[in-house]
Amino acid sequence: MLIPCPVCGPRDHEEFAYGGDATVARPTIAEQSATAWATFVYDRTNPKGAHQEHWHHVHGCRQWMVVSRDTETHAVTGARLIGAWAEPETEPGDD
């Protein structure tokens, strides 16, 4: 799989670490509810098809990003940075 890293360009997924489901919203640090946290930590929709995922470019720019990827075809359709460097999503491929 090629991931279109917004910083480094298209790179093999081997350079990245998988960070899991990006559709689950992390509670704020002030959230005290164990249920809210448990839902975030344990419960997954686990879709077959389009998915939003966190990937970390550990052997590259070390940015965390949200990657749009299909769990059935493994087709990667985009990646966008999150955090301080967030910017609009880039399209994959140079075709």
Binding site: G20, D21, T39, Y42, D43, R44, T45, N46, P47, K48, T71
Partner: peptide, 17 residues
């Protein structure tokens, strides 16, 4: 599991495929 259980209305489970 997640796909089949979704058909029963269970949308979230502690499972990843």
């Amino acid at each position: 599991t997640s796909e089949v259980m979704r058909r029963a209305g269970i949308t979230k489970l502690p499972i990843e495929s």
